[in-house]
Write a protein that binds this DNA or RNA. Structure first.
Lengths: 210, 210
DNA sequence: GTCTATAACCCGATAGAC
DNA sequence: GTCTATCGGGTTATAGAC
């Protein structure tokens, strides 16, 4: 089952301290951003003192970088599986979008971390987020264009279409605290997520299918 | 209101300094977030020292709050005009969406500030962002539902539809540094914005119109 | 209104004992 | 691996001179 974020720490199978730190650090960074979280916050969440933390990671930036890289590689791995699917036409598009939703549903906090990186333009990190994701973006755009050429999809600008999909899906998760106040249900409840996913898929289908 | 010339002049000077501080503060907060900007940064941008800044605003939080409230009321005023339009059917929907685009295009930096507020759930502020915007959100949803009842629009969940539109439009502006790396043009160039706007409108039209 | 000087605090990071 | 203690630098905010 995906989503080892939800892994429960049993008393028998204890995770290494490093792993514990990475887990809590991601939570804190997602909640308050890079500048907004101190090593004290992370150390307190783990249950150790700040200097002990810096014994495992040589700096705050190193800790952030490692946590973010782990998240990113996990996401790319899962998206690759969806993209490699042999489905065709609308079904394949639906599979990829669903994978995106599942990704975010399994790691609701991490979405906000990704969003903060996009906002800052990757300032905290050496790696260029858009450069890493661009191959996937190009592949998806080319797939859409092929479908439009074949007449399976109505013709749109594939890249702007993908950007619109990216924004509408990601925002629902990243802005959940804000959206909570706009709708009556809790945005991140299982029912609300399913409802939003089904709506977005139905909406894109109506626009794309001739 | 009436007063001798000296009083008027000095009042104007006070306001212009305050105004200058508010302007630079918005820029800084949008660029680096609340925690990421220091009063030194703002003071340097204005060209004064930090203590002088705190002579005009009693705290960093007060400065942030006032800047944000001004931005918010400006936006609501402009959106109200669009919503009060007497157009009907698709045209009215297009007018409101276009107003949103124009809003963001005119204040590209402020979009990022709004996004940061949505991410944090309004942590820095006393005011509840979603509570302020909810009346507009409800009005828009009821308008959409009326159109669907009349058969002008294909039936979707109006609220999830609005959330999707909100995400796809806002993200394009807020994540511009990230999107720059995904497309070949600059995301916030006049041409790119017009292109994205026209695409989103055409896309929503294809999905909504029966 | 703006300034210098300073108070009080929190931060990341290091040194060294256990 | 974890701790106490501490350094050096940053922050907001205040006091008081000009």
């Amino acid at each position: 089952m995906p989503g080892d974020d939800a892994t429960v720490l049993s008393t028998r199978e204890v995770l290494s301290t490093r792993e514990l730190i990475l887990h809590e650090a991601l939570q804190c960074f997602a909640d308050a951003g890079y500048e907004g979280t101190s090593l004290n916050d992370i150390a307190a969440a783990v249950g150790i003192r700040r200097p002990s933390l810096l014994h495992h990671f040589e700096s705050k930036e190193a800790l952030y970088g490692e946590a973010f890289e782990r998240l990113l590689s996990d996401w790319m791995e899962r998206l690759d599986v969806a993209i490699a699917s042999e489905a065709i036409g609308w079904e394949k598009f639906e599979i990829v979008l669903s994978a995106g939703f599942q990704l975010f549903e399994d790691n609701p906090n991490y979405v906000r971390l990704m969003r903060r990186e996009a906002l800052d333009g990757g300032g905290h990190l050496g790696i260029d987020l858009s450069a890493v994701l661009r191959p996937m973006f190009d592949a998806a755009a080319e797939y859409l264009e092929r479908q439009m050429d074949e007449g399976t999809f109505r013709r749109f600008d594939a890249r702007h279409l993908l950007l619109a999909a990216y924004g509408s899906i990601l925002s629902y998760f990243s802005d959940a605290p804000f959206i909570d106040g706009l709708i009556d249900d809790e945005a991140l409840s299982k029912d609300s997520i399913r409802e939003h996913k089904e709506h977005v898929l139905r909406f894109f289908r109506a626009a794309l299918m001739v």
